[in-house]
Design a protein around this nucleic acid. Structure first.
Length: 496
RNA sequence: GCCCCCGUAGCUCAGUGGACAGAGCGAAGGUUUCCUAAACCUUGCGUCGCAGGUUCGAGUCCUGCCGGGGGCGCCA
């Protein structure tokens, strides 16, 4: 308490400070000056979203790799959470002084791709009445028949006469093309767009894998055992388990691809920082991969893996059961078509990454106050409506009398807006976008409270100055709501 | 067996070692000749899973336990 008193006496006079006081155990409470607060309405409205831009990154090149589901079928709804998180992180970083690249890693080689091509070939043959069955370990989903139909539409029966040895590569290539186009289309439904689709196979075609292999060989990080080539993970990690690098069948394993891929990210492409968004079922690999960067001379701190937990879908409080074995999955597209991108993104972002989500479809589509998405967007639409009405009445926002904004609802709204940079810094530092939806709801609530207590528009000439000031506050609210919605990748409707 | 995540209000969830643990929804009551009633206000709402420990101070850190989920592959 005594220290506090001394500190208070030494506080410089700042225009934003109204007063400082000491509270119970020894807290110093600084009170913002109301006139200063009121002036921020003008600053926000004038600067637009730039008012909130901060520079945490100093122009550093950061890559956010997300979704990256195997290109063997439509995206499962769980992938939508990955997309929501990855894209929101990208948006947060972009607005915090980082240069961001969004990347989708395409696992276009390996066993599952071969199985995919084989299944596709069989489905194609079936379309011509041939009595063949799909492989027992193949992909039983009906979407494979759709893919085969597309190939039939483009090529007719001409592929039936392909030489046997050309079939796997041809169907792999055709299938991949179809799936990638579908992934891009479905992700666009969620307003997610990638800057790069990075092919795993390219690592083997462009020599990155060979270079990494040579480096590791040189460092004696590789050894042979049981007919396979192993990476000495134990040299770099607190672990007694090594990683298979090249399998006994001669094929590089996923770890070999991963390390070559990150060599490419850091050494070839020169990213300062790489963020991978992975589902929790990769938690073990997530714990190990950064440490193995040391083998490439890369600081493990430069690789961050964001893990998120799974999503279960509910309808009317009841879980929707899916059977992956039978190929019955709930796709991202189905859910997006039902609930829309905005609601999906809001709910998928509203939980901390580590928490599981019960996604309630009924709530997401509800058009009432139970649904925070509508509440928030409605607040924006209401703001827009007031501004439209003002314009029609010849009233314009003005900064000359902002000191008239003195009532508690007005000041609370201003304070809430000024919290946003703090929210953004926190979300970036912890890579936790879930603070955004909570803040947005808070802000919408604070605005609606203001709206209920303070009439903005007035045709009374004596109220003109207050009206101009409140219009300025309203405009600042519009800027702020629209900005926080854009960080989440959601739309800010002018009308509802 | 070892490792990771979760457990906070009736429900869904926030909570960065600091003040009396917060929001929304639901509930109860009230408001509206008025800029979008898709609204607003008021009220009540807690053994922070349990038990120890560290600390001036713990929902937060440590240990153990209980409950739920996940991971420990020559799959990715």
């Amino acid at each position: 308490m005594q220290i506090g008193e001394i500190l208070i006496k030494r506080l410089p006079d700042a225009e934003f400070l109204e007063r400082a006081e000491i509270a119970k155990p020894g807290f110093i409470n600084l009170h913002l000056s109301s006139p200063w607060l009121a002036r921020q309405a003008g600053a926000i409205a004038q600067d637009g979203p730039d008012y909130y831009k901060i520079d945490l990154g100093g122009g550093k090149k950061v890559q956010v790799e997300f979704v990256s589901a195997n290109p063997t079928g439509p995206l499962h709804f769980g992938g939508a959470r990955n997309a929501a998180i990855g894209d929101a992180l990208s948006r947060l970083l972009e607005n915090s002084g980082y240069q961001v690249q969004r990347e989708y890693y395409v696992n276009d080689r390996g066993a599952q791709m071969k199985t995919f091509a084989r299944t596709l070939w069989r489905r194609y043959q079936q379309l011509f009445g041939m009595d063949v069955t799909i492989p027992s370990d193949g992909y039983p989903g009906a979407y494979m028949i759709d893919y085969a139909e597309k190939i039939k539409a483009a090529y007719g029966d001409t592929l039936l006469s392909l030489p046997d040895e050309e079939i796997p590569a041809r169907f792999r290539e055709l299938g991949l093309k179809i799936v990638l186009a579908e992934l891009e289309h479905d992700l666009a439904l969620m307003n997610v767009h990638f800057d790069a689709w990075f092919s795993e196979q390219s690592l083997y075609d462009n020599g990155d894998f060979d270079r990494v292999y040579a480096i590791l060989r040189e460092q004696d990080d590789l050894y042979e055992k049981d007919g396979a080539v192993w990476f000495r993970a134990s040299k770099y990690l607190k672990s007694d388990r090594d990683e298979v690098f090249i399998r006994s069948n001669g094929e590089p394993g996923y770890f070999a691809s991963d390390i070559a891929y990150h060599y490419n990210k850091f050494i070839v492409r020169g990213f300062d920082w790489v963020i991978n968004v992975w589902a929790v079922d990769h938690q073990n690999q997530a714990a190990r991969l950064p440490g193995t960067m040391k083998a490439l001379g890369i600081d493990p701190e430069r690789l961050t893996i964001v893990l998120y937990d799974l999503v279960t879908l509910k309808r009317g409080g009841k879980e929707i059961k899916i059977s992956k074995r039978a190929g019955e999955i709930v796709t991202m597209r189905e859910v997006l078509e039902e609930v829309g991108a905005d609601a999906a993104r809001y709910f998928l972002l509203s939980h901390s990454n580590e928490a599981r989500i019960d996604f309630d479809i009924d709530l997401a589509v509800a058009q009432n106050s139970e649904n925070p998405v509508y509440y928030i967007q409605y607040a924006h639409a209401r703001v827009a409506s007031i501004l439209r009405k003002a314009e029609a009445a010849g009233l314009t926002p003005g900064s000359d009398h902002l000191d008239l904004l003195t009532c508690s609802e007005e000041l609370a709204l201003l304070r809430k807006m000024l919290q946003l940079p703090e929210i953004v810094v926190n979300a970036v530092e912890r890579l936790s976008p879930h603070h955004l939806p909570h803040y947005a709801l808070d802000l919408a609530k604070t605005f609606t409270n203001f709206y209920g207590h303070c009439r903005v528009l007035s045709d009374d000439p004596e109220q003109k100055e207050l009206t101009e000031a409140r219009l300025m506050l309203t405009l600042a609210t519009k800027t702020t709501l629209a900005y926080v919605l854009s960080l989440m990748g959601m739309s800010a409707p002018e009308k509802m």
